[in-house]
Design a protein around this nucleic acid. Structure first.
Lengths: 137, 137
DNA sequence: ATCGACTTTGACCGAAAGCTTCACGGGCGC
DNA sequence: GCGCCCGTGAAGCTTTCGGTCAAAGTCGAT
């Protein structure tokens, strides 16, 4: 159960774009790739998925670029993972074996609680500088 | 971020063994494989890992078999994942790019909360029949 | 002692997923 | 029309995962 690099990239890039929110500046692929250390060619695909997922908007041509589709405080970690990975904690359906159903049920409950947890983390929190003042609630 | 089949198998098998806890019966590989629909040859590896992780004990020879190393209520979902996967929610260290550190920090916090959450699910809960009386807390 | 059942270990392999790169098509502003 | 930047799809490489196989080690029963 490891966090994919793709999600990591997406979070970093969105964090960068969150800082640009409010201004009318657009983010450019090359710039994002350089600042956040993401392979540009890979980033294109990620941005496309984020756009199809409704998290960002794009504009083509000269003076084109990317921007958040809505305010940073309206975009959660849950949204990001949902768009990129499709599912937080994908569970093996089928539920085979004598204990299959019960195990699936428990994991589904864990997923539910994890989703609620992830919805607490909005994108504006990503724009802040790292602190060690963060504790578990 | 999908739950591996391996963890699923481990949970199912441990659930089965939890039901045997208290009796002096031992679980056998072929029996476990059949009842929980896990490939026997694969199950061998999983049981070995669980034993090395201290969750179960084994006894060789005729009338050998496997049993839980401690009471079901002392084995949590967290323990299982830790032994099998090594880490709940493995995070990409390195923290590259301008937002890398901050993103890593947030995910680390999510992991911490997820760990706490998983420690609530003990193995004795796995032995119960599936119910729909379970709600999120 | 020896036989047989079971565990233990390690090597191996095919398939799938993940990460990355390349090449080319398409819209927008000047 | 030209340059710039986004858009799309496909192909390659690497790693992980799920599963198999073979051979050796261990112990209990007889």
């Amino acid at each position: 159960m490891k966090l994919s690099v793709k999600v990591d990239y997406a979070c970093r890039v969105l964090a960068r774009m969150a800082r640009l929110h409010g201004t009318d500046a657009l983010a450019h692929i090359e710039e994002l790739a350089r600042i956040e250390s993401v392979p540009a060619n890979y980033l294109v695909q990620i941005l496309t998925e984020l756009r199809n997922g409704g998290l960002i908007t794009s504009r083509r041509g000269k003076q084109g670029g990317y921007a958040l589709a809505r305010a940073p405080q309206d975009i959660t970690l849950y949204d990001i993972v949902k768009v990129i990975e499709g599912d937080l904690l994908e569970i093996n359906m089928a539920s085979e074996g004598q204990s299959g159903r019960r195990v699936s049920q428990i994991w589904a409950e864990v997923r539910g609680r994890l989703e609620i947890l992830c919805k607490d983390y909005t994108l504006d929190k990503f724009a802040l500088k790292p602190t060690d003042e963060m504790y578990y609630i």
